[in-house]
Design a protein around this nucleic acid. Structure first.
Length: 270
DNA sequence: ATACGGCCCTGCGTGC
DNA sequence: TGCACGCAGGGCCGTA
C-alpha cells in the first residue's frame, strides 16, 4: 500500500476535483473490506464535500453530518472518473458527484476500508490511538529517543508503530534507516539521541521527497489521474537486495524483521 | 506494557 | 501450459 506519501498524493489529486461538489449517491459494490462498510456512510448523500483531510494513512472526506473515512490498505487506488466510465474489477465503492464525476475505490486485496465518523459521535478509536504526524513539529528525534528507552524491539518495527509516529510503512522505514545510517535490526532502546535526531530528519526528508515524486509505484499504486508515482527510481535500499550500495558499493542485504522484508547496507548502517 | 504471530484478501512471479 | 507456493505498500487482535 500506499504509505503516507501515496495517501497524500491521492489526497492532492482528488481534492481539486471533489471539494465543493455535492455527493449525489454512494454505491457499495463490495461491503466486505477490512471492516464491513457501514450503512451510515449514506448519511453523506446530498451533502457537499467541505474538505478532504489526511490523518496517518486515512483520508477523511468531510461533509456537514460527518466524514467518510477511507483507507487504501495494501493495494487500494483512488480515481476520479466520469460517472459513466466503465466499472472495473475491484471497484468496491463509488461516490458519485453532482458534476457527473465519481470517486472510485479500487482495491484487489480488500485490506482497505470505508468507515463513517459522524460529526457528533465520539472519535473512532482507530483515529484516537494514532501518534503524531511525521511532517509536523510534534514529531522529532527527541520523541523517538524518549519513547524508545527500554524497548527491545528492532528500531525498524519501532518506527513502524503507529503509536510512535504514523505513516511510516515498510518502504520508507527501510529508506529512512539507510539515510540515518542505522541498522534496522538494532534494538530501539540502544539507539542514541544523535542517531534518533538523524532518523527523524531522514523520515521527514524521505516522505517529503516521495510526495514530490508522486509516491512510489511498485505494482498497484496509481495517482488519482491514473499515472504511477516516480519515487521508486530514487529508492536506495528497498528491493535492491544484492545490488551495490549507492554510497559504498557493498551489496545490499535482505533480512526479515517482524515478518517484513527489510533491506540495509551492512557497511553504512550500524 | 511490550512483543510477536496470525489473519484478512487477490494477483503475480517462480519453479517444478 | 498448468499448478502449487510464496510473497506483496497495512494494521488489528489474541496470546505470552
Amino acid at each position: 500500500m500506499p504509505e503516507l506519501p501515496e495517501v497524500e498524493v491521492s489526497r492532492l489529486g482528488i481534492s481539486p476535483l471533489m471539494i465543493g461538489q455535492q455527493i449525489s449517491r454512494i454505491t457499495v459494490r463490495q461491503p466486505k473490506l477490512r471492516w464491513p462498510v457501514p450503512q451510515a456512510i449514506h448519511q453523506a448523500e446530498g451533502y457537499q464535500i467541505l474538505n478532504i483531510r489526511r490523518r496517518a494513512k486515512y483520508l477523511l472526506l468531510d461533509t456537514e453530518p460527518g466524514s467518510i473515512i477511507l483507507h487504501l490498505g495494501m493495494s487500494g487506488k483512488l480515481r476520479v472518473l466520469a460517472l459513466n466510465a466503465p466499472l472495473q474489477k475491484h471497484d468496491h465503492l463509488i461516490i458519485a458527484l453532482d458534476n457527473q464525476h465519481s470517486l472510485r475505490l479500487n482495491d484487489p486485496r480488500r485490506f482497505g476500508a470505508c468507515l463513517w465518523q459522524g460529526r457528533d459521535e465520539p472519535t473512532l478509536p482507530l483515529l484516537t490511538r494514532l501518534g503524531p504526524e511525521p511532517l509536523t513539529s510534534d514529531f522529532d528525534g527527541e520523541r523517538l529517543y524518549r519513547l524508545s528507552r527500554g524497548r527491545k524491539q528492532a528500531v525498524k518495527n519501532f518506527i513502524m508503530d503507529n503509536a510512535i509516529v504514523v505513516g511510516v510503512g515498510n518502504i520508507y522505514a527501510n529508506e529512512s534507516l539507510f539515510l540515518a545510517g542505522i541498522d534496522p535490526r538494532r534494538q530501539a532502546g540502544r539507539v542514541g539521541q544523535d542517531k534518533y535526531q538523524q532518523l527523524a530528519e531522514a523520515i521527514k526528508q524521505v516522505l517529503i521527497g516521495a510526495i514530490e515524486q508522486g509516491g512510489t509505484t511498485l505494482k498497484d499504486f496509481a495517482q488519482a489521474d491514473g499515472n504511477p508515482g516516480y519515487f521508486a527510481q530514487q529508492l536506495r535500499v528497498y528491493g535492491r537486495s544484492g545490488q551495490a550500495c549507492m554510497v559504498c558499493e557493498t551489496p545490499v542485504r535482505a533480512v526479515v524483521i517482524g515478518q517484513r522484508n527489510s533491506f540495509y547496507c551492512s557497511q553504512c548502517q550500524r
